[in-house]
Amino acid sequence: MRLPTLRRDIECQQAVELVTGYLEGTLSRREARRFEAHLRACDGCEEYLRQVKATIAVLGSVQPDDLAPETLQGLLELYRQFRGE
């Protein structure tokens, strides 16, 4: 797991703090390179990034509740009142 020569720049505890910046593309080029170099040498952090991506995918599958027909009807009544009908 531990490859000191490659991982000297950042440690795992710092790497996990950079994940969102990395995914958002807001790290500097140098930071991004160091992060990627760390990941290549570190199974734990590679897995961590994978889990964050999987988490984002699950979050994306969370749907809002369906619009109840009576809610739509109520809003349409409101609309008609607003339009002065």
């Binding site: 797991m1 531990r2 795992c12 505890q13 570190c42 199974d43 734990g44 897995e47 999987a54």
Partner: peptide, 10 residues
């Protein structure tokens, strides 16, 4: 600052 308890593989 290295993992002592790394995430288990999913």
């Amino acid at each position: 600052g290295a993992w002592s308890d790394p995430p288990a593989h999913w």
